[in-house]
Amino acid sequence: MTPRGVARTVLVVLVVLVVQSTVGLDIVIGGAHPDLMLLLPIAAGLALGPEDGAVMGFVAGLAADLILPTPLGLSALVGCLVGFGVGYSTRSVAAGIWWFNSSVALAASAAAVMLYAVLGAVLGQEQFLDVNLVAVVGVVATFNALLAPLAVRVVGWALRPSGEDSRAAIAGSRW
């Protein structure tokens, strides 16, 4: 990745982190709020594939972990797995349907929240399974599905090698 790409990625992660910890926390539905940091690896996986999805998931997750009261590294682990999973499972899909990115974001977000809860419980945070998972999954998945088309564009801009066509163009054309 070029220095400009690194700078763009850091900028996108930082901006989303600030939005998440300000506006994101103000939106509470059923006791749950959106998780925009989770959208970054999903968007990276959709836009550029499994490797970039995993790297973006690790970076965004670690950034979130640093300011969250939950175990350090847990969001990074879930992020890289989700980013890789999204990129891998959609790598050969080039369907021109407008709702494709949103559908993937919906499913991936739901899976990521449940994976986070289960991994947290395995690591001794049993209370992760006591929270209203239905509400958390519903809120996180819905918001991420709504914002996925925009996120794919933004992350594609941040990670795309300059002067090179990428899946972002294809992904962007889906909507």
Binding site: A54, V55, G73, L74, A76, C80, L81, L123
Partner: peptide, 20 residues
């Protein structure tokens, strides 16, 4: 790609272990 994923998983697990 697979190597990258494995490295990231290992780094994450190491960080979690240090934190726990």
């Amino acid at each position: 790609t697979l190597t990258t994923l494995i490295v990231l998983i290992l780094v994450s697990v190491t960080i979690i272990s240090i934190d726990e």
